[in-house]
C-alpha cells in the first residue's frame, strides 16, 4: 500500500507539472502560505501544518453566535483559547429543530430531501450525523457548530479525509442540482460548466448523427458513379 501511494503520488506530481492544471482552474489560494495573511487563514494553516487539529480554538464575540462570513471587521475580534473546551461543549449549540413536532420520530430525509442527493450519502453511505453530529443540530452558521466553515475541515472532514485543509472543506457537500437556477446563484462555476458540457454534447450529437445517417443513406441509394 505504501509503495502504491508513493508511486502514484509521484506520477501525480509529474502529471501536475506536465499539464498546466492551474491555468484551467484559476488559483485563489496562492497567497495562503505567505507570512502576512489574514488572521483566519493563519489559524487554519497552523492546524494543517502542525497536524494538530482541535488543539487551538477561537471564541466568538459576545454579541453574535452566528458566523457566516469573515469579512471586514468581523475578522478581527476572535480570541484564541488554548484548550478548545468551550467550543467542544455541545450545550452551547442552539437547536435548529427546537419546537418542531414529531422530530424525534422522524428521519432526516423526510424533511431534508434535497440534502440526501450528495455523493457522501448516496455513494459512500454516510449518515447525516457522521457530519452534522449528535443533538442538538445547529445551523452550519452557528458559531459553535462543528460544520462552521472555520473549523469544518478539522472537526468533520479530517475524521475521514486525513490532512483535510480549509481549502478542502470548501468543497460543497450538498451541491445544488448542476443546471438549476439555484446553482446559478449559489455555484455559478458549476452552473456554467454544466451548460457548457450539455451544449457541447447536444451540439456534437446533433451534428454527427444526421451527418452519419445522411452518409449512410447516400452510400446505399446514391448512383454508383458518384458514390
Amino acid at each position: 500500500m505504501q509503495t502504491y501511494t508513493c508511486i502514484s503520488k509521484a506520477m501525480a506530481w509529474v502529471f501536475f507539472m506536465t499539464l498546466p492544471a492551474s491555468v484551467l482552474f484559476p488559483v485563489l489560494c496562492f497567497g495562503r502560505g505567505e507570512e502576512v495573511t489574514s488572521f483566519i487563514n493563519r489559524y487554519k494553516q497552523y492546524e494543517v501544518s502542525t497536524g494538530y487539529y482541535e488543539t487551538y480554538e477561537m471564541r466568538p464575540r459576545h454579541e453574535s453566535p452566528l458566523v457566516s462570513r469573515f469579512r471586514g471587521r468581523d475578522r478581527d475580534p476572535f480570541g484564541y483559547t488554548s484548550t478548545s473546551a468551550s467550543v467542544r461543549n455541545r450545550h452551547l449549540l442552539s437547536d435548529s429543530h427546537r419546537g418542531i413536532k414529531f422530530y424525534d420520530n422522524s428521519r432526516c430525509e423526510m424533511c431534508h430531501a434535497n440534502e440526501t442527493r450528495d455523493i457522501h450519502t448516496v455513494r459512500a453511505n454516510l449518515t447525516c450525523r457522521q457530519c452534522h453530529g449528535a443533538e442538538p443540530i445547529a445551523s452550519i452558521d452557528h458559531y459553535y457548530s462543528p460544520l462552521n466553515p472555520i473549523r469544518r475541515h478539522a472537526y468533520v472532514c479530517s475524521k475521514c479525509h486525513e490532512g483535510a485543509s480549509a481549502s478542502f472543506a470548501s468543497y460543497v457537500i450538498h451541491e445544488p442540482a448542476a443546471g438549476s437556477a439555484d446553482s446559478k446563484t449559489q455555484f455559478p462555476a458549476l452552473f456554467y460548466a454544466y451548460w457548457f458540457m450539455l451544449i457541447l454534447l447536444a451540439g456534437t450529437l446533433a451534428f454527427f448523427i444526421p451527418h452519419s445517417i445522411m452518409m449512410g443513406v447516400r452510400e446505399l441509394f446514391g448512383k454508383s458513379k458518384d458514390r
Binding site: F25, L28, A164, S167, V172, A193, M197, L201
Partner: peptide
C-alpha cells in the same frame, strides 16, 4: 484521485466542478 492533495493548491470547491466535468466529458 487526490482530493486532499489537490485542494492544497487549488480551492476545494473546484472538486465539485471537476467531478461534473469528468462525468459530462
Amino acid at each position: 484521485m487526490y482530493p486532499v492533495f489537490t485542494s492544497r493548491y487549488i480551492p476545494g470547491w473546484t472538486l465539485n466542478v471537476a467531478a461534473l466535468l469528468h462525468r459530462a466529458e
